[in-house]
Amino acid sequence: MLPLFKALQTKHLALLTVVATFTSTQLIAAPKSQSISTYKKSDACPAKFYDVSLPENGKLCQVFAADLPASLTLFVPQAPTEVLSYYTQGTKQFTSSEQIKKRYVLRSIDSSTTLIISKDGQGSQVDILVTSLHKS
């Protein structure tokens, strides 16, 4: 009985590996009952997400909702204070910022976009929520 158990366990692990590999490289549609339209995981990040520029060294981008309200998460290898500077210096897009529980929360001038910057290992996680198109 023990050899049969080991054989089943090995096949189960192999199947999980195949499913995990397939899932991490494919576009996955969310259930139609949810307002989230798509979920996409990618190692490379686009240059922009709506009107928000993304750091060139951003990676592990995950788009949780491509349609408004839209959201994206990415990893940046810099400390949260450096990422905060990236989004506040040299641009007038984000003016309001506050620190809540070791996270920086930035809001755009027109309140259409919120960024949350938090420490993540040796870098930072940046969560971007776009609720409406930028109002000029």
Rank of each mutant, 00 (worst) to 15 (best):
L54N: 05
V63P: 01
K41F: 13
K102H: 11
Y86Q: 05
Q122H: 10
A65N: 15
A79L: 08
I100T: 12
T38R: 08
Q62R: 15
Y39G: 01
L106W: 06
S42I: 03
L84W: 09
Q62M: 12
F49S: 01
G121H: 07
H134G: 02
Q34S: 15
E56A: 14
L60R: 14
C61D: 07
P77Q: 04
G58P: 05
S118H: 09
T21V: 10
Q78E: 13
F22L: 13
A79D: 14
K92E: 02
K41D: 04
R103F: 05
L68H: 06
Q89Y: 11
I100A: 05
I117N: 06
K40L: 11
T81M: 06
A7G: 06
S42T: 14
S108E: 03
P80W: 07
R103S: 14
G121V: 08
E82F: 04
A70Y: 02
Y39K: 06
Q99C: 10
L133R: 15
A47E: 13
L133S: 09
Q34T: 15
S108H: 04
T10H: 10
S33L: 08
S37C: 05
P31S: 09
S85D: 12
K11T: 07
I116Y: 04
T73L: 10
P3D: 00
F94D: 01
C45T: 04
Q62H: 09
T73K: 14
D120H: 13
K101L: 11
F75Y: 15
K135P: 00
L74A: 07
T38P: 00
G90P: 07
A47K: 15
S33H: 13
A7Q: 12
F64V: 07
K101H: 12
P55L: 07
T113P: 01
L2Q: 13
S24I: 03
A65H: 10
I116Q: 11
E56T: 14
F94C: 03
T131A: 03
P55H: 03
K40E: 08
K92M: 02
